[in-house]
Structure formats: structure tokens, C-alpha cells
Computed example of a mutant assay.
Amino acid sequence: MIPVFQTQKSLTCTTRCQILMIECACTGVRFFAILSMQRSGSGWVETLLNSHPNISSNGEIFSVKERRSNITAITKTLDRLYNLDWYSSAAKNECTAAVGLKWMLNQGLMKHHQEIVEYFNRRGVSAIFLLRRNLLRRYVSILANAHDSAMKQLNGTHKAHVHSKHEAEILAQYKPTIDKKTLITELKRSDKLAADALVNFKNTRHVVLYYEDVVSNRTMLMDVLDFLRLPKRKLFSRHVKIHTKRLCDHIDNWADVTDFLKGTPFESFLNGSRR
């Protein structure tokens, strides 16, 4: 015979679980998309967000060209992600959850921005912009990453992100020689792409972050949790920053680049200004 107090305890636990299930069923899942550009810290920020028990960001889904070949393919891909049964998912630990992806601006996002804005607003998808202020530093990272992709400096493998100081130091040894003929064009292109994205998606629910600001003030990520209406938690990442020195220490032809950018709208990048 089961003691009365044990039966009552079991019933109490059952009732609490039922209440919890009802609460979870009534709590909407937040949808989001991290909108960024390559080498802008999106991988690092995504790992930070994914360390939260109620966030599931699913990487750079649209790096696969077939998924972004046209707007139909894009919306089908988004539907597959956002239509998953997150109400019973293990990721939904506290009756609130945010589900999303990382999406680069050059992966069909700008080409089909009108339809995507309509989709975001219809499905309630919030946009988290993550951009770089110093585009020259971003360009150095792009060139260094391309070099490692070709040379595979870490025991014959290419790593876009590293998890140890030793690996970061190896990759940071490469100092690109920047082609002055294409530098201004590249900086203007990146600047315009980011500016156009902010204009094109201004009518969505969105927040704008800059990588440099997050690096210097991690508490800005708490604002993102508020934006997603999630409980605040300490966030962590195993990513190790590769280029940590002064910009002049990461460019082989620094003197030439300095002379070339003086008097241009991008001169402020030389002293590390965030512009």
C-alpha cells in the first residue's frame, strides 16, 4: 500500500508537469535571424547566443546555393526551420525559446529583400544586425581567411574560427599585402552593402549591433536577450580572437595603405576608429 503522503506528492508533481506543459503550449517561440557579412563576428556571437539554454541558432543555412537559388527556395528553407515542433523540443527548457539562423547579406538576402521583409513581418521574425565599424580590419580578416583556406596552416586543415590561443597566434602570423587598386572599391562596396541592408529592412522588428561594440561591452548581449524576450543568462563562447594587435601589425604594406587612405572617407580606419 502506498502511503497517502507519497500519493499526494505524486499527484502534485503530475499537476505541476501538466501546468508546465500548458504554460509551454501557450508561450510563443521567438523567431530571429542574425543578418551579417562574412568576417564580422557572426560566428562568435552565434556561439554566445547558443550557450543560452533557450536559444537555438542553426548556423549559416543559406551558404548552400540551392537553398537561395530563388525566393521560393528561400521561403521553403525558412519554413522548414521555423515550422519545427519547438513546443516539445528539448531546446525549449523554460517555456520560452528563440529559434533562428545566421544569414549573410550576400546570400540572396538583398536580392530578394522585399519578399523577405514581407515574410519576416508575416511570420514574426526579428532581425539582429551584426556589422563591423572598421571595414579595413574586416578586410584584413577576409584576406587572412582566404589565405588559410588555400594554405591550410593548422596541420593541413582550414579553420575559419579557432578555439585556442596557439591556433590564433599561428593564423595571425600571416600579414596580407593589400592591393591598393582594389582597396577603396572594396571598402565602398562593403559600406554600401551594410547601409542598404539597414534601409531595406527598416520596416522589420530589428536591432543593430556592431562587432567592435560587443567586444568592448559584452553586456550589450543582454539587450539582445531582452529584444528576444528571454531570461538573462551568462553567455560564453570557446572562440578565440585571431587579430588582436594594432592594425598596423597585421598588414604587410602598412605604409603604402596609410598613404593611400589619407584624405579619403576611410582614413579614420587607420587609427582603429570605429567610424
Rank of each mutant, 00 (worst) to 15 (best):
G124V: 02
I61Q: 02
I184F: 12
I142L: 10
N134A: 06
L270C: 14
C17N: 14
L35V: 01
K180Q: 12
S69K: 15
N200Y: 05
T204R: 04
T72Q: 06
H147F: 15
N134R: 03
K159P: 02
H112S: 10
A146D: 13
P3M: 08
L48M: 12
A168R: 09
L270Y: 09
E60S: 00
E212C: 14
S69M: 14
T47N: 04
V125A: 02
W254V: 09
W103L: 03
L221F: 07
L105R: 03
Y174G: 07
H161E: 11
L235A: 05
K262C: 12
S42C: 03
R233K: 08
H163N: 14
H243K: 11
A73V: 02
I55P: 01
L261S: 09
P265G: 08
V140T: 04
L135R: 03
N58E: 02
V29E: 01
P53L: 05
L270A: 15
T157P: 03
L131E: 02
G263M: 12
T244I: 13
S190K: 10
E115V: 02
F32V: 00
V199P: 00
S51E: 04
F266W: 10
R123T: 01
L109M: 15
A90G: 14
N106D: 15
L230I: 01
D249F: 07
I61G: 00
A195Q: 07
A160R: 04
I22S: 09
L143E: 05
F260N: 08
S190Y: 06
P231L: 02
D191Q: 08
A150N: 11
E23W: 15
W254Q: 07
Y174L: 08
E94A: 11
T47F: 00
L136K: 00
L135K: 05
H113E: 09
I19L: 15
N121W: 09
S273M: 06
L270G: 11
W44H: 09
F120G: 00
F31C: 03
R137M: 03
N145I: 03
Q114I: 09
S10C: 08
E60Q: 00
E115D: 15
Q107S: 10
R133G: 13
N106R: 06
S10H: 10
L135D: 02
T15D: 13
L11E: 10
H250P: 05
I71K: 04
Y82N: 02
V215H: 05
Q107T: 04
M21V: 14
K180A: 12
N93T: 13
G263S: 10
L84S: 11
E60H: 01
R39H: 06
C24W: 06
D249P: 06
H239N: 15
R68C: 04
F269S: 11
M104Y: 03
E118G: 12
I19Q: 12
L48Y: 03
T12F: 15
G272W: 07
N121I: 07
D256A: 14
